[in-house]
């Protein structure tokens, strides 16, 4: 990371750190409370909400895991999220490559058509979407989720990826064309590796969105064995309203995978996100 250019003096530095630290606490505190409460008993959560737990009840997790049927939901969420990303990255990077590199009539219009999706909240079209999913016999399937997620991820992905493709110097491709590479292999072998960082950003962004969505599973899924994590948590909250230990530990279980993935990839992700937004 390049260094910032404006460097105030020592006293100001300390004050700034104080502000940043204060905000970090505001951000982390509720998450910390959740983690702490998830290893307490219900009564202890009420009597001692802030303190360190009297004993670490790690079995809260296994209890919540079993009660909520989380292993099944996990598999479903993982399947839907991973597949969504793979399909989405493939189709939108191909389209973005073409939109960024080929001059043809209607290019601009096509790009605008895709980008306008950023302003179309898919959720508002849920009724016709539902009717269609029913008519093509995809109701109560994970495929339905996959399709809707891929389609609704396309606008943002194309928006980001077109910007990235445009930033790659044209000479690289020209060399490949001279070497006699076909269109698809230029895209696949040369361009795709170059936009790796952007793909990672798009991938993580959509992973978070897909993993966290509850609306479409709520509408499309019927069978409990197909539920994803947020829907499972929702169901769980409906059933165990009075068992706070279970509620907090189920929240922790639902949140932790995303946090881990984000932590691992945060640097890359933040760079990609902000680069795209600033250019847009």
């Amino acid at each position: 990371m390049e260094l910032p250019r404006w460097r105030p003096g020592k006293l100001t530095q300390i004050m700034l750190h104080f502000i940043l630290l204060a905000y970090s606490i505001i951000v982390l505190y509720p998450i910390g409370i959740m983690l702490l409460s998830s290893v307490k008993g219900t009564r202890e959560i009420f009597t001692n909400p802030y303190g360190w737990p009297a004993s670490l009840r790690l079995d809260n997790y296994s209890k919540a895991w079993k009660l909520a049927n989380f292993s099944v939901y996990f598999q479903n969420s993982a399947f839907v999220s991973v597949m969504t990303i793979l399909v989405l990255l493939f189709v939108s990077s191909m389209a973005a490559y073409v939109l960024a590199r080929f001059e043809f009539r209607g290019n601009r219009a096509l790009y605008m058509l895709f980008i306008s999706g950023l302003m179309l909240p898919v959720r508002l079209a849920v009724v016709p979407l539902f009717t269609m999913i029913r008519d093509i016999n995809l109701l109560d399937t994970r495929t339905a989720l996959l399709m809707v997620y891929v389609a609704s991820g396309i606008p943002f992905s194309i928006f980001l990826l077109v910007n990235f493709f445009k930033s790659i110097p044209k000479e690289i491709e020209e060399a490949a064309i001279i070497d006699g590479c076909g269109l698809f292999s230029i895209y696949y072998r040369i361009m795709l590796p170059l936009i790796g960082p952007a793909l990672a950003t798009v991938g993580i962004y959509n992973f978070i969105g897909t993993w966290n969505d509850f609306f479409f599973p709520l509408i499309f899924l019927r069978t409990k064995s197909k539920y994803t994590i947020p829907l499972g948590v929702m169901q769980f909250f409906g059933e165990f309203t009075n068992q706070w230990d279970m509620l907090f530990s189920s929240l922790t279980i639902a949140i932790v995978p995303v946090i881990i993935i984000f932590m691992v990839a945060s640097k890359q992700f933040i760079r990609g996100m902000t680069a795209g937004a600033v250019k847009g």
């Binding site: 539902f130 009717t131 029913r134 109701l139 169901q235």
Partner: peptide, 21 residues
């Protein structure tokens, strides 16, 4: 037997009935 969250039941049932499911 299947149970749904009370506040969601009506919408899920409505959508289910409408689709013949």
């Amino acid at each position: 037997y299947r149970t749904f969250i009370p506040t969601e039941y009506d919408s899920i049932l409505m959508v289910g009935m409408q689709s013949g499911e």
